[in-house]
Write a protein that binds this DNA or RNA. Structure first.
Lengths: 201, 201
DNA sequence: CCCCGATGTATCGATCCGATATAACGGTAG
DNA sequence: CTACCGTTATATCGGATCGATACATCGGGG
């Protein structure tokens, strides 16, 4: 859910699309579900829903080039002209800020269960924003994830028993590596859960 | 690339959509990029491209219910009637087999480089089919993947240095866990590469 | 001065996903 | 026997995402 990621970042400060994407990429690694082709439509959706609003078509928003006030006014004029002309691309920044209804939407999305259909990426995203969750919500998120991985693991094991011998070495290697990764994920989660409960106590 | 997965499975034996999905799910875990909403369109694409062909609208393809030849003929008739009526859903199996041009397409997709835009799932898929690759192709695949992960890792580290202190404990935990997972992936790859080179020698 | 690379917004087509509809079959409870 | 239910099976829809590409502006170096 890209919306959640966007709202979470805008919650801290108003940003424009390009910067948003950079932060997203470095926050979730390269597998963030963030590309311009999905980011800009998502921003439009959020804007249409009233969850975010454009705060300033601030042209480049950089310390004024100190050639007197004239420079600033010219830049502003140029921005207006570009905006009015329906410029199809270009460098004029569109800075978005979160609204109060966006804040609310963020809370809802963060706490949403989605009935175990929570993607791997969605979980990482939610955990990265766990600071905005109440302690009970954090534990809940971690426990749900843990249950999901445990189930996935037992299913993988049952499957491995059923098909032992039918697969070649490469397939088996992939499967086993996945199994190990899942096991490590689970023990990571258990550490986090323990830490969470320890801090509450 | 779902096409690659489908062709790889059909290479071993002719299958229908439902079975294809089951094998896909247990082959790549639950993150196989396989859902009916993408599987059936992919089959249609492959059929249109001549890479696969329907071999029999075999109704349930089960040992004939031993009531003489009549049972079989009735079933075949029912299947023909259903097929002609343009049935919108239902249980009539559509079994697909790979064609020689499909074999060729499979080789191409498996060996394709895609200029480092290879997804995590795509890599796992290709590795699972590495048996169909020449030894040099296997090493190439593994080395490419390793280079990709090494780059991802160094980027993540540079990023961590830059933003140290700006992130809360949850974000940092996610990031660090990702880093560890990537490191393990790399050492796994290095094992595979060593094994591959050892077996060649 | 002019081109190059980084910054920035935007869109297109293709693909993939989750939900849902449709339908036939096997078994079992009444 | 039938009425229902869970599994098997194909198919489609709308929406989300992706990768590629286009367009536009700015700063800096040759």
């Amino acid at each position: 859910m890209l919306e959640l990621a966007i709202l979470g970042l805008l919650k801290e400060q108003a940003l424009h699309g390009y910067e948003l994407k950079k932060r997203l990429s470095e926050m979730l690694g390269p597998f963030s579900g963030a590309s311009f082709g999905s980011l800009y439509p998502a921003l439009r959706r959020l804007e249409a829903a009233g969850a975010v609003e454009a705060v300033a078509s601030d042209p480049v928003a950089r310390p004024i080039p100190m050639t007197g006030s004239l420079g600033g006014e010219l830049a502003a004029f140029a921005a207006r002209r570009r905006s009015a002309a329906g410029a199809k691309g270009g460098r004029t920044r569109r800075v978005y800020a979160i609204t109060s209804s966006g804040q609310q939407l963020f809370e809802e999305l963060l706490a949403a269960d989605s009935g175990s259909t929570d993607d791997d990426r969605t979980f990482n995203l939610k955990l990265a924003f766990a600071r905005h969750l109440p302690p009970a919500g954090r534990v809940n998120l971690l426990e749900r994830r843990r249950a999901q991985l445990v189930q996935r693991l037992s299913q993988a094991r049952a499957n491995a028993r059923a098909r032992r011998g039918l697969l070649d070495a490469y397939s088996r290697s992939v499967l086993e590596h996945c199994r190990e990764t899942t096991e490590r994920d689970i023990s990571w989660l258990e550490q986090l859960i323990a830490a969470e409960k320890g801090s509450v106590k």
